[in-house]
């Protein structure tokens, strides 16, 4: 009987303590950052708006390999490969449906050329959902983004305009197929 009573008193006491402790929070400073008035600091690796970058020569980095599209868990990236007259691959169109995008950054991880990058910009809301479908011209920037020196075609074996066979990094000049010399 007394034990049960004691238990009930303890229950009520703990509730009262809770009430008191929560009441004290009334005098704490709020943690809220008042976003539109006060801009929060966005970290450089924040996964926000997606951009397409250019390599140090100013050419489009994207080679339309489709790896971002296949890595995308919501399948919101679609593109079509085409190539210029020198054999350089680039996307004919590159479309991201941002109304589906979950900003997971898998596309950036999958990209073998550092073309697709996520930026700290997160202010992408639109009133019309159709406006959230972005094409290449909306995403392509005139810079290298986070990776300044990487140039995919300088390490790839494929010849493109301005870079012939054997002219990439760590390559020997093309072999003479008519020679049998060692």
């Amino acid at each position: 009987m007394f034990k049960a009573l004691g238990k009930q008193i303890k229950i009520i006491w703990t509730q009262l303590v809770s009430l008191w402790l929560v009441f004290l929070h009334l005098f704490n400073k709020a943690d809220t950052v008042e976003y539109p008035d006060v801009m929060p600091y966005m970290f450089p690796r924040w996964r926000g708006r997606i951009i397409l970058t250019r390599d140090p020569d100013g050419e489009e980095r994207c080679v339309a390999c489709n790896l971002c599209a296949v890595a995308c868990p919501v399948d919101c990236i679609s593109l079509q490969k085409t190539e210029d007259e020198t054999g350089r691959w680039y996307p004919e169109f590159f479309r991201i449906n941002f109304s589906r995008c979950i900003m997971c950054g898998f596309c950036e991880e999958a990209c073998p050329t550092h073309a697709i990058q996520l930026t700290p910009d997160f202010e992408m809301a639109e009133y019309v959902r159709q406006d959230m479908v972005w094409e290449k011209e909306h995403m392509l920037i005139n810079g290298t983004g986070k990776y300044h020196d990487y140039n995919f075609y300088n390490v790839a074996g494929k010849a493109i305009g301005g870079k012939g066979k054997g002219e990439a990094q760590n390559e020997l000049p093309p072999v003479d197929r008519k020679s049998l010399l060692p």
């Binding site: 929560v22 009441f23 929070h25 009334l26 704490n28 400073k29 709020a30 943690d31 809220t32 008042e34």
Partner: peptide, 8 residues
């Protein structure tokens, strides 16, 4: 409720 949970 906001004040009690350190919000605004």
């Amino acid at each position: 409720l906001g004040f009690f949970s350190d919000r605004l």
